[in-house]
Write a protein that binds this DNA or RNA. Sequence first.
DNA 1: AATCCGTGGGT
DNA 2: TACCCAAGGAT
Length: 397
Amino acid sequence: MRDTRPGPSLASAMPRDHAPSRSAADAGDARTRQTAPALLAWYDRHRRDLPWRARPGERPDPYHVWLSEIMLQQTTVATVGPYYARFLQRWPTVAALAAADLDAVLHAWQGLGYYARARNLHRCAKAVAGEHGGRFPETEEGLLTLPGIGGYTAAAVAAIAFGAKATPVDGNIERVVARLFALETPLPASKPELRRLAGLLTPETRAGDFAQAMMDLGATLCRPKAPLCLACPLTAFCAARAAGIAETLPRRSPKRARPQKHGVVFWIRCPDGAVLLRRRAEEGLLGGLMEFPSTDWREESWSVSAAIKAAPVKADWQALPGVVEHGFTHFDIDLTLLTGEVPARTKLEGVWVKPEDFAGQALPTLMKKVARHALAALQDAPAAPPETGRRKKKASS
DNA sequence: AATCCGTGGGT
DNA sequence: TACCCAAGGAT
């Protein structure tokens, strides 16, 4: 249903005992007072029904709010959905999650990325279950002491789960606020100012609904590209809209190019078909996840002879055709593969796993690509007639 | 303070 | 293709 009412008038909201608005400062003051009521009215009509969101009038479950906020860090709603459902079914309470094995949590997190979140999620659950009597702290300061909870998440949980007047500021809200105030300072330098301005907008009550409304607005109308200003409940207050620069905001400082790195993976088989996997270090890139052994990943390319010197075992190495490519946030990588046979399940650092059991391992996407590539190449290679047509790539994970 | 952390979808 | 960007945190 379309709302055909005119937008709120700036003048009508001015206190009666004040002179009519004449200055930009007055207009800005009107903006800070009128934004929340207008936005909440919009939210009450257009609120999205998300799995972790309490129904109107229902009390939110802090565990649900916290779990969803951790998963949603730098991750889209659509991606999170299935993971959230699986976690909640398997670990219905924070106590259940605290009692889980870290390996099980990492495995359930597989594919969601930023795996430090999963380790901190588990640590946080243990802290809440152990040191806080099974209840989450209800203040920003208290929440901030927990692993994996930073300024954004502390404010989001405090506001959404506990009704505190707190102002979470995520990428959506940064964009909405930058446009509302036509702030042209580029990110990330503008972050403190954006937080301050967002705080000015936050109402005394319904701070949680306000935050979610701002995020909904950013996700559906105040989008990065092609914002739908005509449907926006804040268009009357939006300085960027008035100036015709909404789509260009927020500005961003240029980011440096991502380096290209190279590595060589050792696909080590034993006669029963098992392949060697090892666990990565707990800290850093893909921390705690499983991988196929490889050389260092470096910007200098590897020769086969140099790579073989770095192999974890002696073998008759054979190069597989093709490369596996992958992009991370801050670098791109290509991996080439060497296959080698060992006579038995040699005692090496790692575990022997048959390909049909890979699904039971916490393999990051890069290593799933490696497995798919190796299995396809090994299936094609032995005594295969020369390829004449295009080859279809099959997913085998 | 700048850099390091994944991944998938949209354009 | 090559970007952008997403309910950020830790160091």
